[in-house]
Design a protein around this nucleic acid. Sequence first.
DNA 1: AAAATAGACGTTTTT
DNA 2: CGTCTATTTT
Length: 731
Amino acid sequence: MQHLPHYLRDLNPEQREAALATEGPVLILAGAGSGKTRTLVFRIAHLLRTGVDPRSILAVTFTNKAALEMRERVAKMVGKEAKGVLLSTFHSLGARLLRDHGTRIGLPKDFAIYPTGDQAQLVKRIISEEVHVVATAGEDSFDAKKVLFQIGDWKNRMVDPAGAAQEVASGRMRGNRTDDYAVLAAAVYPRYEASLRAAGACDFDDLLLLPVKLLREDAEVREKCWRRWRYLMIDEYQDTNGAQLEMARLLSGPLKNLCVVGDDDQSIYAWRGADVRNILDFERQFPGCKVVVMEENYRSTQRILDAANGVIAHNTTRREKRLRTGNGPGPKVDLWEFADNGQRSAEEQEAEMVAREIGVRRWHEQLRWSDFAVLYRTNLQAKPVEETLRAANIPYRVIGGQSYFDRKEVADAVAYLRVIINPADEGSLRRIVNYPTRGIGRTTLMKLVDASREAGRPLWETMRRVAEVDGVSRAQREPVRHFVETIEELQVEYRATEAAIAAGQVEERTLMGFVKEAVKRLRLEEAVRADNAKSERAAEVRVDILRDFVASIGTYEERTWTAQPLPDEEDDWNPPALREFLERISLSEEDDRKDKEEDDPDRVTLMSMHAAKGLEFTHVFIIGLEEDILPHSRSVQAVADESGIDPIAEERRLFYVGITRARHRLTLSGCATRRQRGDSIPRQPSRFLKEIPVELVEHRSGQSRTSLAPEEAKEMKENFFARMKEMLGQQ
DNA sequence: AAAATAGACGTTTTT
DNA sequence: CGTCTATTTT
């Protein structure tokens, strides 16, 4: 092994083995912090150094963030050559396959990707307009999201509407209360699919399902993919679902140069259809595969690892592994408890502790703001922390939560753009047909919808022929005619803009110019102001959001031009287009906050533990360590109805993921009371806390100068601390 | 058809 | 508590 290329000397033996095993199936079981990404980056570098065409390498990650990070690291290591390597999420890979070959399975060229909000709208419409049998289920109102969730579950398992109907009929559904929803969902499912197809649209799950269908049915496309991608790598393999497994299998082809990396202890997406068995059964599914186990941790102190090991050891079905590190023991894990003291709610005190600790540690340990992360189970928990950090003038950023593109102002503008590109998109069309209000009311719209159902043509076509529709008076006809005219003008202009871009006669921000003009002509800003007439300030904030959105198109455009390859380079580059911009929005690859982050990247990070997977921070706070938050109440309830998977075990893995994000210091906290709907209710400490060996924990009390707290609260607090001590003593 | 008011209601995690 | 929804009023 002395003739190792110099760039591989920095790897440990296991990492090196993984990086060098380029041919055939490879399974890398990589514990948290074991240098997994690094190994993949080196593996790609090694492939390139041995003369492999960058374009034949495909690396699939789970999140955009992970894809971005890997791209940067590969680029840093191998330079320009890295550009040819395709780094993508499963969903954007799916979108790409459909964009290139979707017409072969009957998808239009300009298919849209429906955001979840629109999906729910569609389901609601189907329930109210088409499935009138609703009452059988014993409730009179239905949550569209639950229906959607059930449909998504079927799709993730690659069950089609017929299969779903069968499943429901044979009573094979899991739950008992969920049965009603399953029956309803089975009725909605085929209609939902039909509506999506009629609108020329896909939902998120289709981005996995349809490519599988495409690859299965079309040998030509399949072989084309095999010729192109000869080395396939998949990160976070423990989080793949049935459709993703199938996609990986189909893409790996006869060469089977498939390298998967993952850690069954970090499987936290079962609720979305992920199946840990995919990683546990990999050896069986790909016989003769090479297995590399990486247990050496380079990230955390020994105490943090011991805490993590202590917790995860309580899960029963897992591949046994124990993280070790050459790092020092490090400080103990801090554990804080807070109780309502009459002045401040416990969660406010918890947030204040976080702010105070960040201030102190940053000073004492010479850290940057960006060395700190605050992690939580639910996005709601960010709020008090956010407020406190803002008050303390600590710069922060919140990852996740509701997307900026879900904002009404932005969603409306997006709907217009979708309609301009594809007027068959009925969901978007309905959304904007009377926004801003232009006198096309519910009655008129219903007449048009009925007429279009009857004639079997899209709503848009019916609107164009409004004169032929019976029962629509002249007065009602006029606004429809005007609306159609406006959209058609914009369509013509958009086509001209696209042609100009294709011909290269463009300024830097041609697309943005078009959208700006459209927003102006449609009077969207005026509409936003009218919606917020009560509050001048709210109106201005929302208008700003709309303007930011328009500006983000300019950013996208510039970025795309910058990435343009030299004429002699082979690449998959395309000039900027609205269609691609909208696709990127749907896949959350576009984010307005990027610009703002760039001007000051040194910020404390606030995010859910799910979002934190794959990241690391010097000092990590995990807040809200209480029963019903972690583990979440829904998981606790779910234990009752069996189903093979253990929701508590998944919550425990989530905690494990949170703990192992910390490099040097870990601070845990929980509240003995929590304000909910006005009054404060008692809480129990998380059961997972007692799974951390006591000797690792420094128990700190957050109680303070409160002499006048009501008797009740005091008692509650004492009980909480007593329980805490009891727990810690049990070990 | 649009605005205003009452009411219900409900709170995981993400591509 | 605050957000979204349904109903009523103009």
